[in-house]
Simulated scan of single mutants.
Amino acid sequence: MTGTATAEGRRAAVLGSPIAHSLSPVLHRAAYRELGLAHWSYDRFEVDEAGLPGFLAGLDASWAGLSLTMPLKRAVFPLLDAVTETAASVEAVNTVVLGADGRRTGDNTDIPGMVAALRERGVEKAESAAVLGAGATASSAVAALSRICTGPVTAYVRGEARAAEMRGWGERLGVDIRTAPWSEAAAAFDAPLVIATTPAGTTDALAASVPDRPGTLFDVLYEPWPTPLASAWSGAGGRVVSGLDLLVHQAVLQVELMTGRAPAPLDVMRAAGEKALR
């Protein structure tokens, strides 16, 4: 199933289901070329929760690491030898580093990737923030905000169960989380930093509510791009951080973890991602 690389080769891949849309191969391969890692390869494999144990069992010593997307970020936990504090904090692993001895270490580069993407756009700190949505990405957003937000964070969600879940993440991560119903989501735009973590189309109706002087919007989507909300936000003069920014920054960290080479070529990887999206 997984095959074997040449004697000098090292392998990595992204796993998930569905996986055909993933830009990870484009980003990682661009990094390998720039770093002169001619014998490294990076592929994608359609793997669901049921197939993950067998896939991992079939890996040989040529494998250096794996990127994980849904639905594997939590399913992988019982299959790991160690988990970093960052990954454990949100119960989500998006990176598996495979040691020479076969040891599997789970990490999460989404959280520091979010912080790095914001920092690149000039956002070092926020006095308060708002999060749109309550899924897995929202928990990573709360973890990222625990590092940069000095005040309260309001999460706009559908249903009390989601609200309770977000308050729970706040307690766990040391963030003052308040919750509000999705019907009041336009009020989020009063915050200096808004992180939209919802699926494509969910925030489209909110584009008409963007204020005249918006702060910073971090929209985690990258396709289609720009979203109607991102377009309205930038049109009003607000700062926008895109899902591609996040994807590239978390991939940079993955490349560094898997290859041991740093810094990974951020600009080259972003250019490759932009070209692929065009």
Rank of each mutant, 00 (worst) to 15 (best):
S146F: 05
S146A: 12
R147L: 12
R147H: 10
I148R: 04
I148K: 04
I148L: 15
I148F: 00
I148G: 07
C149Q: 03
T150P: 06
V153G: 13
T154G: 03
A155H: 11
A155M: 09
R158W: 08
G159T: 13
G159P: 04
G159E: 07
G159Q: 06
E160D: 14
R162T: 11
R162F: 14
E165K: 15
R167D: 08
R167G: 10
W169I: 05
W169V: 03
G170D: 10
L173T: 08
G174P: 02
V175N: 11
T179K: 13
W182A: 05
E184F: 13
A187G: 07
A188T: 01
D190K: 11
L193T: 07
V194L: 00
I195C: 01
I195N: 04
A196Q: 08
P199R: 13
G201F: 05
G201I: 05
G201V: 06
T202V: 14
T203R: 03
D204S: 13
D204H: 11
A205C: 10
A205W: 05
A205I: 04
L206W: 03
A208C: 08
P211C: 03
D212Q: 09
R213T: 14
L217D: 06
L217Q: 03
F218V: 05
F218N: 02
V220G: 01
Y222E: 08
Y222T: 06
E223T: 15
P224F: 07
T227A: 04
T227L: 00
T227H: 02
L229A: 02
L229P: 14
L229K: 07
W233H: 04
S234N: 10
S234F: 02
G237T: 01
R239F: 08
V241R: 00
L244N: 05
L244D: 08
V248F: 02
V248H: 01
V248K: 15
H249C: 15
H249Y: 09
H249M: 14
Q250I: 03
L253R: 15
Q254I: 15
Q254G: 09
V255R: 04
E256L: 10
L257A: 09
M258D: 07
P263F: 01
P263S: 11
M269F: 07
A271T: 11
A272N: 04
A272G: 00
G273V: 03
